[in-house]
Design a binder for these strands. Structure first.
Lengths: 150, 150
DNA sequence: CCATTGAATGCAACAATATTGCAATCGAGG
DNA sequence: CCTCGATTGCAATATTGTTGCATTCAATGG
């Protein structure tokens, strides 16, 4: 059984490297925000993130900085906004095309992104039937994860 | 071709009647809010709704009143909150179990709720595979509707 | 008819989330 | 070193949503 911390850290480094390869600037702020999300065990709100980072950096981070950084990370595909919670998670799936479904546990915050190609095809078919062209998708299911159903 | 206004009005009356049958109290405020949503041609935010109703009633409606009324209507299944927009629409599908997908046009606001049983089954299967028990679902697709793709 | 009661509403204050506009800073490339 | 664009800081403000408590209203039982 691998050490989950180390494997996660490798994942984080990989995610950052992937952003750089795409030509994106990874600044200390961006890296710090992504790291905070990466190791959080639940979705974090923008202001929660701000408070957390402010402690670490020992200075007060501004709300716009946090939001801009989150927008950047979401744009890079390494973070995901959970619309139904006004919160953010790191996307740990490097090759994710973000055509995925997000399960979020109400009790512990565990968030699992799942791909399902069949479901994609059904959505695409429904959209086609309506003549609808999809820009953005929000598929969020909340409830209780296996561990918290007790 | 039926007159769409009249058929919509009938739908509204039916929706209200259905709520009453379930034992819910339909007050003038609740009716007014549902009517505003029903005839709006796009999703309305809570404060938008407040302003609209304030004009009609010629008195200032409070934010808590609007939110409470929206909560009530959503609880009754006759209104739906669009998480990705902080906005609300009337649900015109009387027998909807709200296991549906919502398509929202970014240009005109047209919102279509679509049922898809196959998709339901896939979601249920994914949840089962994770041992996840689903409380709430948010399936919102935004983009351009057939009319606005030009 | 009146009193009681619970639901619904009004309302002030506040909390949480998000954005705007502009100034200051930083860093890569000339 | 200088310039330029991207990034960040920051104050102010906008938008969205909630809390707590007082008031009103309508149904119910005496």
């Amino acid at each position: 059984m691998p050490n989950s911390k180390i494997s996660s850290e490798h994942g984080l480094a990989d995610a950052i490297a992937a952003c750089r390869l795409k030509g994106a600037q990874i600044t200390p702020l961006r890296e710090a925000v992504l790291e905070a999300l990466w190791f959080a065990e639940r979705p974090l709100g923008a202001y929660e993130l701000r408070d957390h980072l402010s402690e670490i950096a020992d200075r007060k981070l501004s709300a716009p900085s946090v939001y801009r950084t989150l927008d950047f990370l979401c744009g890079q595909g390494v973070a995901v906004r959970i619309e139904s919670r006004n919160a953010y998670i790191a996307c740990k799936r490097p090759h994710c095309d973000h055509a995925c479904i997000l399960f979020v546990c109400n009790a512990c915050g565990l968030s699992s992104e799942i791909e399902n190609k069949k479901l994609e095809r059904l959505l695409a078919a429904d959209a086609a039937a309506l003549g609808f062209s999809i820009d953005h998708r929000v598929l969020e299911l909340s409830g209780s994860c296996a561990d918290c159903r007790g």
